[in-house]
Design a protein around this nucleic acid. Structure first.
Lengths: 171, 171
DNA sequence: AGACAATAGATGTCGTCAACAACAATATAG
DNA sequence: CTATATTGTTGTTGACGACATCTATTGTCT
C-alpha cells in the first residue's frame, strides 16, 4: 500500500487561494500549530519536496497530459531499442501488472506499441510510435523547462548537490 | 490524481528475491537498458529516495501498523492542544475530506477522538486517547530508530545537509 | 526427448489515495 | 437580518500499489 508523510501542499493550496486567513493562520495569533517531531524527519521533507517538484512537473507538462510516471516509461522506451515489458518494469521498479495497464493507456493514446519479439514469443519489444516520438520530444523540452525552473529556484550549485546526494541514496 | 516518477524499488524488489538474473540483468551482458534523461531529473531521484525512506519507515513501524501518513496526523494532534480538523489538514497540506476518513480509521482503532469544540460548534478538538498516547510514544521511539538508521547510512553530516536543503525547499 | 521449473504478459481484485463536488450546520461580515 | 464563508461530512471517480492467478512460452535438468 502506498504510504506517505502528509505535508503542506504547495501551489494550489487552499490557503493560497482564499483571501481570508485560514484557521491555522488565525490560530498563530495565539499559539501556532506545529509539526512537532516531523521537523526532524528526512522522510517528511523528502515527501514534501517530491510533491512540490511533481506538481511543477505536472503543471508544466499539462498541455500534453503526461505525468511523471508516463514520462518515465516513455523515456525508457525511447532510450532503448525495443525493450521488453519485463525490462522496463525492472528498470523503473514497478510491478509488471502495473506496467501492463500503463502501456494499455499509452497505446490507446497512440503513443507506444507492443511489437512481437523476434527471439522470444512470450515477449514484446516496446516502441514509441511516430506520434509518440513527436510527443516525447515535446515532453523532453517541457521537462527541461521544468528542471531549469528548479535550477533557477535552488541555484545551480544547490541543485547539483541535491541531485548528487539523492543519486547515491541507498537504504 | 497522484502522480509519481517510476523508479527502481528498494528492499523487496523482485531482482533481490530471485536467484537467477532478471531479464534486465541478463540484457546488460550486451546492451544495458538505461534511464535516459531521467538521470538528470531531480524529481526522479526525490521520488526514489522518498520511496526508499518510506519503505524503511513502514518496515520499522510495522509492529504498530502506523504508516507515514498516520504518524504525521498523530504527531500534529499530539503536539498541539486540541487542534481542529481544519488546522491539522492545513498544516499537513491534505484535503479535509481525506482527513475525515483518516480520523475515522484512527478513531476505530481507538487512537484519537473528536471532542466538540467549546468555542465553535462546527469544530472538533482532536485528541489522542490514552491508548493513542501510548502507541504514539512507541511510534516516536520506532521513528527515531528509523531516523538513526538513515543517519547511520548517510552519515550525520550528509543527513543534516539533506535535511536542511530539503527543509528550505520551495517552488 | 520429455518432464519440470521459470518467465512474460495478462486479468482480477481490494483497500487506499487524490481530487472534486455537494451538502448541512454554524460562524462571520456587512 | 441577510449574505457569505467556514467546518466537517458523504459521495464519487480514476488511478495506484499490491497480491493472486492464469496461459503461453522458454529454459533447465535428467
Amino acid at each position: 500500500m502506498a504510504e506517505r508523510w502528509l505535508s503542506p501542499r504547495t501551489a494550489g493550496n487552499r490557503a493560497a487561494s482564499g483571501a481570508r486567513r485560514t484557521t491555522a493562520a488565525r490560530r498563530s495569533d495565539h499559539e501556532p500549530a506545529g509539526l512537532g517531531v516531523l521537523e526532524n524527519h528526512l522522510g517528511y521533507f523528502l515527501r514534501r519536496a517530491q510533491i512540490a517538484v511533481f506538481q511543477d512537473f505536472i503543471r508544466t507538462l499539462a498541455e500534453i497530459d503526461i505525468g511523471p510516471a508516463q514520462y518515465s516509461v516513455l523515456t525508457v522506451i525511447g532510450s532503448n531499442r525495443g525493450p521488453s515489458q519485463a525490462e522496463v518494469a525492472d528498470l523503473l521498479g514497478i510491478e509488471r501488472a502495473r506496467l501492463v495497464r500503463m502501456l494499455d493507456r499509452l497505446e490507446r493514446r497512440g503513443l507506444t506499441i507492443r511489437q512481437p519479439s523476434s527471439t522470444d514469443r512470450r515477449s514484446h519489444a516496446l516502441q514509441l510510435t511516430p506520434h509518440g516520438q513527436k510527443l516525447f520530444k515535446r515532453a523532453k523540452a517541457l521537462a527541461a523547462t521544468h528542471e531549469a525552473r528548479l535550477i533557477g529556484r535552488l541555484g545551480a550549485a544547490h541543485h547539483k548537490l541535491l541531485l548528487k546526494a539523492l543519486h547515491d541514496f541507498e537504504l
